[in-house]
């Protein structure tokens, strides 16, 4: 299954042609445009960068950001690092453990460590989360 028209991929590859170390920027762009980086595009990327398919696969699978399948649910990234833990994020997360309409995924630090618990949705950040505020966020995203 092709996940995207070849021409779209080619546009991205053309845009990065000749750049040093272009693989991560390319993968970011593909994921930004298609929501994931499917296996089907790996040979095209490998060919363009003159690296092996295995190398592309190795890189995609290394980084948490890259997904090989489209997300099934809307994603709320909830910071689970120490500063947010100190401010009660574990109890907050536990309260939403059964949430099925959105996927609440861990992220380790958003750099807002004095005002946690914090969450990240799309291009928006949310600080000082309480159960009520997170519930509202879930409603908004779901």
């Amino acid at each position: 299954m092709k996940m995207a028209p070849d021409s779209d991929i080619d546009d991205i590859l053309t845009e990065h042609a000749g750049r040093e170390g272009a693989l991560l920027p390319i993968l970011h762009d593909i994921q930004a445009r298609f929501g994931h980086v499917g296996e089907a595009v790996i040979p095209t990327i490998a060919q363009a960068l003159n690296i092996s398919r295995a190398e592309v696969h190795g890189v995609i699978s290394f980084y948490h950001d890259f997904h090989t399948t489209p997300p099934r649910l809307p994603v709320i990234k909830l910071c689970r690092a120490e500063s947010c833990q100190a401010r009660g994020v574990e109890a907050l997360a536990a309260a939403f453990a059964d949430e099925t309409r959105v996927s609440i995924e861990p992220v380790y630090c958003l750099g807002l460590c004095s005002v946690g618990p914090n969450a990240w949705v799309g291009d928006q950040l949310y600080a000082r989360l309480t159960p009520e505020r997170l519930a509202a966020l879930v409603e908004q995203v779901a």
């Binding site: 296996e39 398919r53 295995a54 592309v56 696969h57 190795g58 699978s61 290394f62």
Partner: peptide, 23 residues
Amino acid sequence: GTFALTIAGRGFESKVSAGVASD
């Protein structure tokens, strides 16, 4: 010089992979 192999994944899940995941 073929670069047919990689380590896929990372950490404890690191594993040797020939080609892409479905290969």
